[in-house]
């Protein structure tokens, strides 16, 4: 049977749209895990990145941390934390927590690096003229550095989000449903319709997030670029 029609047939089956293993529920799960992971990662990485970018202190630390974060395979990250999180909660500690932690590890580096690089990359003359006019350090960051760097900062959140959405599928290996569930089950049951339906859903969600955040990024950068000659 040809792949496209298998996927279409799978989507057409009403049974796949209800219950805990249905598309809406798992989509909701997937969005929820991704959102929580990116939010927690941003809570950690944004202040740190902005601080390092503004003060230029700990630049080496930021770069190394980001590289380590990038070097850890997400699947390995999930596996490593399972024994610890299971001690907290036998069920959630096995399926949910490890995935979220691995996604945070995945999302921190791009957010951190972009926040740091964005702020550090703001024209030094601009910052000096702001300081020279009597803006406090906090005002320099809030009124000059962040607004100027905002497209770069949002860019970091965007690439983190896309990576998290794509990679959160791995959680299914440890029993967390989400959209990865369709892929893992599809492989196990040799059901190509199910497998590729999962792939399509993940890809669409990732593209949607990418598009939405790209739009935000453009809007925030609008005044400078749009009226520039």
């Amino acid at each position: 049977m040809d792949l496209v029609s298998a996927v279409v047939t799978w989507f057409a089956d009403p049974a796949h749209w209800t219950g805990q293993n249905g598309v809406p529920y798992r989509l909701f799960q997937h969005v929820g895990i991704s959102l929580v992971s990116v939010l927690i990662a941003a809570t950690i990485a944004l202040p740190l990145g902005l601080y390092i970018g503004h003060t230029r202190r700990g630049q080496a630390l930021a770069v190394n941390l980001a590289n380590v974060g990038r070097a850890i395979p997400s699947l390995a990250a999930i596996a490593i934390v399972v024994p610890f999180t299971q001690m907290l909660d036998p069920t959630l500690g096995f399926n949910l927590y490890p995935t979220v932690i691995a996604m945070i590890v995945l999302a921190v580096p791009p957010i951190l690096v972009n926040a740091y690089a964005g702020v550090a990359g703001v024209d030094a003359d601009l910052v000096e003229s702001a300081r020279g006019m009597g803006l406090t350090e906090r005002q320099v960051l809030a009124r000059v550095e962040i607004p100027v760097a905002i497209p770069v900062i949002v860019g970091g959140i965007r690439s983190a989000s896309v990576q998290v959405i794509a990679t959160a599928t791995l959680g299914a290996i440890y029993g967390l449903g989400a959209l990865g569930g369709f892929i893992v089950e599809g492989v196990a049951q040799n059901d190509n319709g199910r497998l590729f339906a999962g792939v399509v859903l993940v890809a669409l969600l990732a593209l949607l997030a990418e598009g939405a955040l790209a739009l935000v990024e453009r809007r925030l950068a609008a005044p400078v670029v749009a009226r520039g000659s």
């Binding site: 024209d123 702001a130 009597g134 607004p147 400078v224």
Partner: peptide
């Protein structure tokens, strides 16, 4: 220092206008 700077006009070669403000 902040008060001092607010009471002194400062112009540099690159001007340093804030690009995100009118």
């Amino acid at each position: 220092v902040i008060e001092l700077r607010r009471g002194i006009g400062y112009v540099i070669q690159q001007v340093g206008l804030f690009p995100h403000q009118t």
